[in-house]
């Protein structure tokens, strides 16, 4: 048995699309009960990083270990079967399927099927609005409802770790608060979390630790409680003009 203390461990990961490299050697880790944020401007590799971890795209170099085992060569469905669940950005899910059908289907892997009943209860109590609209088709949902369903689908997969990509993208402040509560509730059950967000206040309210991603690399690591230097963040977005 390894004395591994991390849920996710990434070393020098490189990946990209076609001729362009997007991730230029990323190393990070997420502890077994830890909530970690990824923060940084658009187009700097956060979504690519999640896509590489869940093997939507293949890594070009580096290693990814989940619960102590290498997963960088595994196909997406095998990674899901191990319980590393990626809830993608602005997921439009399955437009013609009903909410309940989608949630039941999401418990697809054998492990998830065994937990179907308990996870379904958990999702419906976490998002009562989904319970009210159970017969409604995904394409008729509002942005907030679709985001709830996306997270619900992630929970139906029986996660041992969740990766959420901008769960509050385009939502009103009120809905953001609702989702933040739900996410906090999920992670309070001991599910480690990797959260990508643009809203710095939102990330900081939810995570123990945060990485700043800049041009395909980790530029800084910020612990909770540490003062966030707003100048640093402004620099990241607008470029440093100080000599």
């Amino acid at each position: 048995m390894s004395n591994n203390t991390n849920a996710l461990e990434i070393v020098d990961l490189r990946a990209g699309y076609d001729a362009s490299d997007v991730l230029l050697g990323i190393s990070l880790h997420v502890g077994l009960r830890e909530r970690v944020g990824l923060f940084g401007p658009n187009g700097h590799g956060k979504t690519t990083l999640l896509n590489t971890i869940s093997h939507v795209i293949g890594p070009r170099a580096g290693s990814i270990r989940f619960m102590g085992e290498a997963i960088d060569a595994l196909a997406s469905q095998k990674i899901v079967a191990r319980g590393l669940i990626h809830v993608p950005q602005a997921n439009r899910l399955f437009p013609d399927m009903e909410i309940m059908e989608t949630l039941e289907l999401a418990a697809f892997t054998p492990r998830a099927q065994k937990e179907l009943k308990t996870n379904l209860e958990c999702v419906l109590s976490l998002f009562p609005r989904l319970a009210e609209r159970r017969r409604q088709q995904c394409k008729t949902l509002s942005g907030g409802e679709r985001q709830m369903l996306s997270i619900g689908v992630g929970l139906m997969c029986a996660p041992r770790m969740l990766m959420l990509d901008e769960p509050t993208l385009g939502l009103s402040p009120k809905l953001k608060d609702e989702l933040a509560e739900a996410i906090a509730e999920i992670s309070s059950r001991g599910i480690p979390l990797l959260l990508v967000e643009q809203d710095i206040a939102f990330v900081l309210s939810l995570v123990d630790r945060m990485y700043l991603v800049d041009h395909g690399e980790i530029s800084r690591e910020i612990n909770r409680g540490a003062e966030v230097d707003h100048q640093d963040i402004m620099d990241m977005y607008f470029g440093s003009e100080r000599a």
């Binding site: 469905q77 990626h86 993608p88 899910l93 399927m97 289907l105 697809f108």
Partner: peptide, 11 residues
Amino acid sequence: QNPSAARLIGI
């Protein structure tokens, strides 16, 4: 309806 979302639930 959505192959990439299907992949991410383990299909």
